[in-house]
Simulated scan of single mutants.
Amino acid sequence: MPIDQHGDAVLDGVSIRSLPKVSLHDHLDGAVRPATIVELADEIGLDVPETDPGALADWFADKSDSGSLVEYLKTFDLTTAVMQTREGLTRVAREFVEDLAQDGVIYGEVRWAPEQHLARGLSLDEVVEAVQEGIEEGEDAAASAGRDIRVGQLITAMRHTDRSLEIARLAVDWRTRGAVGFDIAGPEDGFPPSQHREAFDYLASEFFPATVHAGEAAGLDSIRSALIDGRALRLGHGVRVAEDLDIVSREGEEVLVQFGDLARWVRDREITLELSPSSNLQTGAIAAWGTTLEDHPFDLLYQLGFSVTVNVDNRTMSRTSLTRELALLAETFDYGLDDLEEFQLNAAAGAFLPVEQREELIDLISEGFGD
Score class of each variant (00 low, 15 high):
Glu356Gln: 12
Asp65Thr: 04
Ile365Asp: 01
Phe306Cys: 04
Leu28Asn: 01
Glu341Thr: 12
Glu136Trp: 09
Gly7Lys: 11
Met317Phe: 15
Gly54Cys: 07
Gln5Met: 14
Arg267Leu: 05
Ser278Phe: 02
Glu325His: 07
Ala217Arg: 07
Phe191Pro: 03
Trp265Ile: 15
His213Gly: 04
Pro20Arg: 13
Gly368Thr: 04
Ser15Cys: 01
Glu253Trp: 07
Ala119Thr: 11
Ser318Gly: 04
Arg269Ala: 15
Glu166Ala: 09
Glu216Phe: 01
Gln344Val: 10
Gln153Leu: 15
Pro53Arg: 06
Leu69Cys: 08
Gly104Lys: 09
Leu340Glu: 05
Asp62Cys: 08
Ala242Trp: 04
Trp112Cys: 08
Ala119Ser: 10
Phe369Ile: 13
Gly13Trp: 01
Ala145Ser: 15
Asn311Phe: 02
Arg224Trp: 13
Leu78Met: 11
Phe298Val: 08
Arg147Gly: 02
Val212Met: 15
Ala327Phe: 05
Asp229Val: 07
Val151Pro: 00
Ser164Lys: 07
Ala214Pro: 11
Leu300Gln: 06
Gly336Asn: 08
Asp47Trp: 06
Met83Cys: 13
Glu137Val: 08
Asp12Lys: 14
Glu243Gln: 15
Gly30Lys: 02
Arg175Tyr: 09
Pro2Asn: 14
Ala61Asn: 11
Asp313Gln: 09
Leu256His: 14
Pro354Val: 10
Leu100Asp: 09
Ser15Trp: 08
Lys74Gly: 00
Ser64Ile: 08
Ser205Thr: 13
Pro187Met: 04
Asp148Trp: 07
Ala214Glu: 07
Phe182Glu: 01
Asp189Gly: 03
Val48Asn: 10
Leu40Asp: 05
Glu243Cys: 11
Ala101Pro: 06
Gly236Tyr: 00
Arg163Cys: 00
Thr291Trp: 14
Val180Trp: 08
Asp244Ser: 12
Arg319Leu: 02
Ala217Tyr: 02
Asp299Tyr: 13
Gly236Phe: 00
Leu11Cys: 05
Asp77Gly: 15
Leu301Arg: 03
Ala349Phe: 10
Met317Gly: 13
Ala9Ile: 03
His27Arg: 07
Asp363Arg: 08
Ala232Arg: 05
